[in-house]
Write a protein that binds this DNA or RNA. Structure first.
Lengths: 339, 339
DNA sequence: GTGAAAGCGCTAACAA
DNA sequence: TTGTTAGCGCTTTCAC
């Protein structure tokens, strides 16, 4: 079979435990012995067996990535690869491996993650979503498994380490930017209504209007699902209002592309006829025509911080709960103009 | 500590091995015993320890995904999330978990994958790239580790199970489509020169020209790196030729968006002034304006088949080497017109 | 500074 | 059909 610690021990004329200590670079082993052992490892082409190590040490050095229901769908959205990039970076730095959930439905994912953790395959998980009343989150909390959520937990946020943006402020500032350009009829195009991000940004949007002395019009708020061509009804309704908006706050780049397309069909030109600012500042924003003014929420950093903090928590279970707010930044391009 | 197989055994008044057999649903255990054991598992809240199982059974039930140098960069390209989606689907069906490489440089990734495999963390890997003279591939071959590559291996392709498109035909048919529209000055915009995909498609492109009795002009072939704004020199040169092309074969949607942008700057309109067909048919193609005619290479399926075949190979090491060609399809939208 | 030995939780050969 | 037992390859007390 394979070269094991015992083979190395024999070759180096030491005990297996000594080899183990050399692997861990224990300070209690003499340099001379270390050299000898390392040489033996080289000669034999030894590679430590992670699995055996995991079993003995009760730690996997692996973190799990939990996608929202339907990993399959999620990956269609540029947000996810980008968070994963950040996670990957941090994991790599700390020498942790990455495991991804593959489940498609909520219940499946729940089972899968439970097995991951109970099966000791991963030391902790990062939830890439924050859903209302999430069964999995409760389970993690109850069993005291290390986890971090990206976004704001709906319940017990103060007990859960999470990495988020200040979505209220984002919504507010973005709206204010548009108001500052002279727009008074600003509409809000949200994604899925049940996500907290949307709700928070909407709150900021309302606040900005109020502070500016403008009234909030419910008919100016539209929820369009991402990645769906079909239900553009709401959007069309928006533009057949007596007083259609002159500016749009669109909650996501991908959605913004959809919107752009629709506006094109309606013969509305951006930014001449209508201004638009979107969020996330993914590659899409830059590649759209016109290039979109977009709020960079630093997705990569969201992932990076999530992984970093999860790993800290795994290493030290007493690590206090943290709430990490990643700064955002409005990136101006060419989709906004004075009214 | 945690509930183990022994606890369950005690509770159910059987031997640990019996419990183990129940987990594996061995047919040699009576239904009655199974029931009894399963009940005990429920009562105690037992979850099998994967790590222990892996160690004992010498199999991890995990497949590794190897990104090209710089996982970090790669994930910026929509191709990767999409293959991963496919891989995820197949893995999920076969109850395999997914582990991703996190390394950034080629050498790092090499080390990482070697540790993954030697450390028995994964049973096999999928290479999401095919590079000339790849050190890792040689290693895998030499050590007889199960692996599958997406794309065409540069060397010993006949010894390596791989999943690919017929890129030669793709290049040829695409060019023919443009020729059929009356274009005689068709340029080829490739990505990274060292990838085999590009080379194969270029071959097809040349062949199409030849068959049509047109001469191949080297100045009509341009390599532009993906995701780089800087080096647009080559492209600009292309359009300052005495006889600039009237149609473009662009090797990738993302690149096509870049090209679109550049054309815009040059005041060339698609498809009026210039026709363009791109590849991959990602969401981008549909969202670009104009929506791009693009060759769907079925990225999802590439991933799906790769994972499926890898898992088969892991289950049965004698599985013969396979070459799987995924069909492609030209999806017509609005970026091409008669000359 | 190093060795001996127990044990992590499971599987699988061999017995019965 | 089920039990006994010896590992899988490593870490980690506890000795010395």
């Amino acid at each position: 079979m394979n070269v094991t610690i015992k083979d190395v021990a024999k070759r180096a004329n030491v005990a297996p435990s000594t080899v183990s200590r050399v692997i861990a670079d224990s300070p209690r082993i003499s340099e001379k012995t270390k050299r000898k052992v390392r040489e033996a490892m080289k000669e034999l082409g030894y590679h430590p067996n992670f699995i055996a190590r995991s079993l003995a040490s009760q730690t996997a050095q692996v973190i799990g990535i939990v996608m929202p229901s339907s990993a399959e769908q999620a990956l269609q959205h540029p947000f996810f690869p980008e968070v994963i990039r950040g996670i990957s970076k941090a994991a790599h730095e700390k020498k942790f491996a990455l495991q991804m959930s593959t489940g498609e439905k909520e219940e499946e994912i729940y089972e899968e993650v439970v097995e991951m953790l109970q099966g000791r395959r991963v030391d902790g998980v990062i939830l890439l979503y924050s859903r209302v009343n999430d069964k999995l989150m409760k389970y993690l909390l109850r069993h005291d498994f290390p986890f971090v959520v990206i976004g704001k937990p709906h319940q017990r946020a103060e007990q859960i380490t999470h990495v988020d943006n200040d979505n209220y402020r984002i919504g507010k500032e973005t709206t204010q930017y548009l108001l500052g350009l002279g727009h008074e009829r600003v509409a809000f195009i949200g994604g899925n209504e049940t996500y907290l991000v949307t709700a928070d940004r909407l709150l900021g949007y309302k606040e900005a209007l109020e502070e500016a002395g403008l009234i909030y019009r419910p008919e100016y708020v539209v929820y369009e699902e991402f990645l769906q061509k079909a239900n553009q009804e709401e959007m069309k309704k928006l533009f057949s209002l007596d007083e259609p908006p002159t500016a749009l706050v669109v909650v996501d780049d991908l959605l913004a592309l959809d919107v752009l397309k629709l506006l094109d069909e309606l013969n509305l030109r951006v930014p001449d006829d209508i201004s638009l600012v979107s969020f996330n500042n993914t590659l899409l924003a830059d590649m759209a025509r016109p290039p979109l003014t977009s709020v960079d929420i630093h997705i990569f950093q969201l992932g990076y911080e999530a992984a970093k903090n999860l790993i800290e928590k795994v290493a030290n279970p007493n690590e206090p709960v943290k709430r990490i707010i990643i700064p955002h930044k409005l990136v101006k391009r060419f989709s906004c103009d004075y009214v």
